[in-house]
Nucleic acid binder design. Structure first.
Lengths: 225, 225
DNA sequence: CGCGGCTTTGATGTTCATCAAGTAAAGTGG
DNA sequence: CCACTTTACTTGATGAACATCAAAGCCGCG
């Protein structure tokens, strides 16, 4: 029996695809696993597959001309992985890298496009999800842009605490340098700010493990800092 | 006879809508004009219309908690106006303001959604356009983020010169403050940098009129500054 | 004409990047 | 398994980039 039938993703992406089509999709899909650090998509690769995440956590990033990386956003299960550009370009404009053990389901893009062209409700579903994803990226980046260093660090900590892990204690899935690449500041200043938060007893740090001790203060820094 | 038949927008948005449907759309559409400075969409408004631009230039912006504005992007004809959020929310998350005399065609969103649900090719067309628009916003903002003050100003000047007006001499459609709101710097520093470019004979300034005198230099500043 | 918003310049101080140097942790080859 | 290399993390000192404050000129509009 096809496991796609019971996949949570079904209700999200394939709500309007009938059983027969779903069996077809299921037969043709490929599941791939990536461990932390592995590259799933490389900037510049041709887009011929349609990827979506079943489990894990990834980062979307783009290389600048001078060898540095910028992180665009993070994605968790039920988000597309190949969402940007899929319907607007034939080459990826960014890379996707696993930052936790990640499982991805893969379909041929041609097939997904064919479904979308024939099944308007499926097409609408896709559109809504793409819209939601990109809206979030745009508004998140705007939010970060208006904040100073401390506010940006607070924002990132709250992002992982509230949005990703839904816990006050968690293991940071990214390095200090990656935080810097995301918020557009230097690694040194990311570290300095984390240390400062530690000294002010707002957080506790044990290497990659973070515990948010004073969430209200952190929220206030995120808002006004 | 219906003017939509010959509208340039037809080939873009409504390539896959038949003549009969188009006549229907044409009868139900409303055309509205906005002069420079007029608000087309207000943040928080319910989304019940589908807008696209026929002529002009607009800015997309969002108010921060402390009364300041951030500019997300600019849109020119053949771009959606109500693109973000349209298929992902029931309220606008940003405002749209005319920065030049602007003409907008308006359809009821319900109708557009109905078409999209029934006509998969139309739905695909919409999706591709939304993807292209949001991709551009995301990548543009990323590009600005990695640059310093001078590079950001150069970026903005080249944006209007190369992408909007396709001329080396043009009238800036926005104030110095709005440039600042777009690139995330202060008005004073925007002015200072423009003056510096003028002193270095990279541009000439006559109030709002800008002439790019040394484009190569400006491109180099945009890239490395 | 006078008021408010936009523009401009200068002086000052804060925030942040850069440079430097050292420790810890993690991966690599003999 | 240990020496070795590399990468991540950390702190301090310095200077550059940028914000803030202040003051004045300009322009359009009621």
């Amino acid at each position: 029996m096809c496991t796609c039938e019971n996949c949570q993703l079904r209700s999200i992406f394939f709500a309007h695809v009938n059983s027969e089509e779903l069996t077809n999709i299921c037969d043709l899909k490929v599941e791939r696993q990536y461990s932390k650090g592995e590259i799933i998509i490389n900037e510049g690769d041709p887009i011929d597959e349609f990827l979506y995440m079943k489990e894990g956590l990834v980062k979307l990033s783009k290389a600048t001309l001078h060898g540095k990386d910028q992180i665009i956003s993070f994605s968790k299960p039920f988000d597309f992985v190949s969402l940007l550009s899929v319907f607007s370009s034939n080459k990826y404009k960014y890379s996707v890298t696993a930052i936790e053990e990640t499982t991805v389901c893969i379909l041929q893009l041609d097939m997904v496009k064919k479904y979308a062209q024939e099944n308007a409700m499926f097409s609408m579903d896709l559109m809504m999800h793409i819209s939601q994803m990109t809206d979030k990226i745009i508004l998140d980046n705007l939010d970060i842009k208006r904040k100073h260093l401390k506010g940006r660090i607070a924002h990132v900590l709250l992002y992982f605490s509230d949005y990703i892990y839904k816990k006050d204690e968690f293991e940071l899935p990214i390095s200090r340098r990656e935080i810097a690449e995301y918020i557009g500041m230097t690694t040194e200043n990311v570290i300095r700010t984390l240390s400062e938060f530690r000294k002010d007893k707002i957080i506790k740090i044990f290497g990659k493990d973070i515990l948010i001790a004073d969430k209200k203060r952190l929220q206030s820094i995120s808002e006004f800092g």
